[in-house]
């Protein structure tokens, strides 16, 4: 068996396992840490697909920045085990959950049956596409407009956050 296949199996099982742990834990910190583990497994999967840049950025942005903030907030608020949500069961939630689960299973079945051999061969171009250089090139030429639009959105969100924080300070003072 090839090393790549073994690594894929390890990372795939790890990703699914950590995802299940993420949604089943009641302790928010345990949940968050399992999600961090999940991001690492995803990053490993990207590496088996020769996408080094995406793999590094996955860890840098999601595990290293976003989840750190999430963990920071959880620790700051010192949330205990959350019981309140679990007590209330509603028909709406049950129906919607079943509906989306069914949709997901159908999508999964479609994806598996459309590629009956089960082997998704990596094209020889994959290595070229995964480099930082080619991603940068297409980001600043072909996808320049969407890139700028996203940066404008982020800037707006940033200014919004600053204004909300400032108003809070003035009210408190």
């Amino acid at each position: 068996m090839e090393v790549q296949v073994i690594l894929f199996a390890i990372f795939a099982v790890g990703a699914i396992g950590s995802a299940i742990v993420t949604v089943t834990r009641k302790n928010p910190v345990a949940s968050a840490m399992a999600l961090v583990g999940h991001f690492f497994m995803l990053s490993g999967l990207y590496l088996t697909l020769e996408a080094q840049f995406v793999a590094a950025v996955q860890v840098l942005v999601y595990a290293g920045a976003i989840m750190v903030l999430v963990v920071f907030v959880i620790m700051l608020l010192n949330l205990g085990t959350e019981q309140q949500l679990a007590e209330r069961s509603s028909y709406l939630r049950g129906t919607l959950g079943t509906l989306f689960a069914a949709l997901f299973v159908i999508l999964l079945a479609l994806a598996i049956t459309s590629n009956p051999s089960g082997a998704n061969q990596l094209s020889s171009k994959a290595v070229e596409i995964g480099t930082t250089e080619s991603i940068g090139q297409s980001l600043f030429t072909q996808y320049l407009f969407p890139f700028e639009a996203v940066s404008l959105l982020l800037l707006a969100a940033l200014i919004g956050a600053v204004i909300l924080a400032k108003r809070h300070v003035q009210e408190g003072a």
């Binding site: 840049f53 590094a56 595990a63 290293g64 920045a65 750190v68 963990v71 920071f72 930082t132």
Partner: peptide, 20 residues
């Protein structure tokens, strides 16, 4: 090819050790 990004990613993950 992305060694610098790996270094930056790992330094940012290092927060978990201390925070946890």
């Amino acid at each position: 090819n992305v060694a610098i990004l790996i270094i930056l990613a790992m330094t940012s993950v290092g927060v978990y050790g201390v925070a946890l």
